[in-house]
Design a protein around this nucleic acid. Structure first.
Lengths: 279, 279
DNA sequence: TTGTACGCGTTATCAA
DNA sequence: TTGATAACGCGTACAA
């Protein structure tokens, strides 16, 4: 029955008192408005508006046993990838989808050298009601954490560990790479290379497989692929044994505009394997 | 005294019981460990480890009156900017700084056409303990919301409204632009243009001012500036009256590699103002 | 140093 | 339809 609480956020009690109803009725009116008379509803609505009432998330979470927040997990040890427009789009999309909800978007970014154990622990800690895994790598323990915690989760891109209860959205990367390669085959090309994505991600793996399949089907040599990491700089890094090359501008954080001039011997497609990162 | 609670997160009560101490002692041992005997501390630590105890954020927040989360606000109506490496770096930095803490990073992204009123309301709602404003535009009401809520906040880049209690980190953009321009002056250039940042951001405003100052100081013409928005595509959009130009590839989400070939008449620096977006 | 008891703001249960 | 009342899990005076 504390009446005066200066400069503090209004509580449900105060709303109820201002509306002339009990706290229970006020609560019902605010959530859903089921089993509440029109006049009571109106009174509560008015009081809420006048007092600028906002439900206390902590108190609500305590009893509903839900946190009211979902995690967007980016288990990406390599910082550069965060600037990837794909991830940026994902971020926006998730944010917008959450807008109409009163769910919080909690961002979980992996630390540079870390193996996602911390994030797995966080997920298991019950701090969020659900999770979206945006850049999943093989071996980051996320699948097990999610399965163990029975946490509703969606992987963006097929997870490394496949399980019945692991849901994901993905495109058919194998077919896409196969079609892309086939297009070059149809154009009469005979020596077709690929710069693969990270092979510890299903994207990279699948696309490489599609490329392989198309070449094999066409009876062409499957011997010119290089590791990539979805970044310009990552692709340009020369393998040992090739002529060393550097971008013309190394001090800028954006990809140098003259990167086309840098060329690794492998990318000239001799067809032979080279000892460095190329295979 | 509820003993059996199957497959639920362990509570402080259970930890205390397992450690053979009272809940108060367990609580003290977990937070700070002040005024607790070494043996009690050890017992609690062991129990925590064995049970995999994680404090319930909601319950803790309810009594400490802190939410345990800080917001990273990106009031950026233009989606493309999210892919900006600067913002990506900010994201990483904030994330890493928060790692050792048990603070949650809550991401607040503006909706496309929206004027940040929703975010301002959210901030005032007391949902976070603090905020970092990453891409602040003039007129987005964020300063007032923060001042009204007495919310600890840091602006990245000087806020449009300057107030005593509004703290920010920034570089001296005026001086930087002045020095950059001066360098060209020293090199003997006489017609020096700038592609400005958004003028409703202090960055854009300040850099333009630095450019102006240096030119004025050198007695050169201050008549060749164009609006930009820190994106490649934004810069390339032709002003009306200039020869229309399009990127060679428009279907890709990444900046076309041949953008250098697209050229607006304004960027050829005739020195004369043109009727479109250039000034 | 330890434990008891209360309150944080909300939802859920159950009589009325 | 409404209103007491009991949790929810935790921190913290206060007393021992």
């Amino acid at each position: 029955m504390s009446i005066d609480r200066p400069s503090t956020a209004p509580t449900l009690d105060e709303v109820a008192h201002a509306a002339g109803v009990s706290r229970s009725t006020a609560s019902r009116a605010i959530n859903g408005g089921d089993r509440v008379s029109p006049e009571a509803q109106a009174a509560v609505d008015a009081a809420v508006a006048r007092l600028g009432y906002t439900p206390n998330r902590a108190a609500r979470s305590l009893v509903t046993r839900r946190t009211g927040s979902v995690a967007l997990v980016i288990p990406e040890p390599d910082g550069r990838v965060l600037a990837d427009p794909f991830l940026a789009g994902t971020l926006r999309g998730v944010g917008h989808a959450l807008d109409p909800t009163d769910l919080q978007l909690v961002l979980l970014i992996a630390r540079p050298g870390e193996h996602a154990g911390r994030i797995a622990r966080y997920l298991k800690g019950g701090h969020v009601d659900g999770a979206i895994i945006a850049s999943h790598h093989q071996g980051d323990e996320l699948e097990n954490a999610i399965l163990a915690a029975r946490l509703p989760a969606v992987f963006i891109g097929r997870p490394a560990v496949e399980a019945e209860s692991l849901v994901y959205v993905d495109v058919d990367n194998v077919a896409a790479a196969r079609r892309a390669t086939q297009r070059l085959v149809d154009a009469g090309r005979t020596r077709i290379a690929t710069i693969a994505g990270p092979l510890d991600m299903s994207v990279g793996h699948d696309r490489l497989e599609g490329w392989r399949a198309a070449l094999a089907h066409a009876g062409l040599a499957v011997n010119a692929s290089a590791d990539g990491d979805f970044t310009l700089t990552g692709v340009r890094s020369p393998c040992s044994g090739c002529s060393t090359t550097t971008p013309t501008s190394t001090r800028s954080s954006r990809p140098p505009t003259s990167w086309r001039r840098a060329r690794c011997a492998c990318s000239s497609l001799p067809g032979a394997a080279c000892p460095g990162t190329c295979r």
